[in-house]
């Protein structure tokens, strides 16, 4: 059980796909201009990640090593197409604003990477724990980046939904660069910098006090 929890928890922070592993950068940069699109993209990617993780883990003894990559791609593409159809049927507005980035989930290297390096070698339970953790880690990262960019670029939060919040007052002059691709690079760079600074701080603290989390900090460094 502890093992499963570890498989789940590592995606949230220690091996966060966006801030630590820097995987799936294309959607991270392209669709985080609002918290809404970031959240939706994160959920859509998580669904594919979990679905492909389960199937690839179940079929791991059936698929010959020589054709595993094409098999993974077909399985991933199947789940992505399901997401594409259902999002266009049930969330037409958000689907329209994400447009071609939903089909592009197929080439998100996070999904193929987890299928190849984890799901295809592990039992289903661990594959699910890993996929859910990575999915949640990816989703919060995209939503977080989207929220920063949306607040600075539009002055709102969760635009285009019923839950739109006006964060900034009337005085606020939206920084349109934050909604453009350069805004994605700026935000991501600053957030990763802060992420690293926090990690280093906890590393030096554990050195000072020598507590047991030193081991995890060492593992982190070696990734």
């Amino acid at each position: 059980m502890l093992k499963l929890f570890k498989d789940f928890a590592k995606g949230l922070w220690k091996e966060n796909p966006v801030f630590v592993m820097l995987l799936g950068m294309c959607p991270v940069l392209a669709v985080t201009n609002t918290a809404t699109t970031g959240l939706f993209m994160g959920v859509a990617t998580s669904f594919v990640l979990i679905g492909a993780g389960i199937v690839n883990s179940l079929l791991k003894n059936l698929i010959p090593a020589e054709v595993r990559i094409p098999s993974f791609i077909v399985i991933i593409a199947t789940f992505v197409t399901i997401v594409d159809y259902t999002s266009r049927a049930f969330f037409p507005d958000i689907a329209a604003s994400l447009a071609l980035f939903i089909p592009l989930i197929i080439v998100n290297c996070l999904i193929l990477g987890r299928s190849e390096s984890f799901a295809s070698k592990m039992p289903v339970s661990r594959a699910i724990a890993d996929a859910v953790g990575m999915g949640v880690g990816f989703t919060w990262a995209l939503t977080f980046l989207g929220a920063i960019r949306e607040i600075l670029g539009f002055g709102t939060l969760f635009r285009g939904t019923e839950f739109t919040l006006q964060v900034m007052g009337e005085w606020f002059e939206p920084l349109s660069i934050m909604t453009l691709p350069p805004g994605a690079f700026l935000t991501l760079g600053v957030v990763i910098g802060v992420f690293r600074a926090v990690e280093n701080k906890s590393l030096s603290l554990t050195r000072l006090f020598g507590n047991s989390s030193l081991n995890t900090a060492k593992e982190e460094k070696s990734i």
């Binding site: 079929l59 010959p64 020589e66 054709v67 098999s71 077909v74 199947t78």
Partner: peptide, 23 residues
């Protein structure tokens, strides 16, 4: 290799045609 890949693609096609019909 050929058989496994063919079966996977066929399963995918069947599943997707159901989803397509539904949506």
């Amino acid at each position: 290799l050929v058989i496994v890949l063919t079966i996977i693609v066929m399963c995918s096609a069947v599943l997707l045609s159901f989803v397509h019909q539904w949506t």
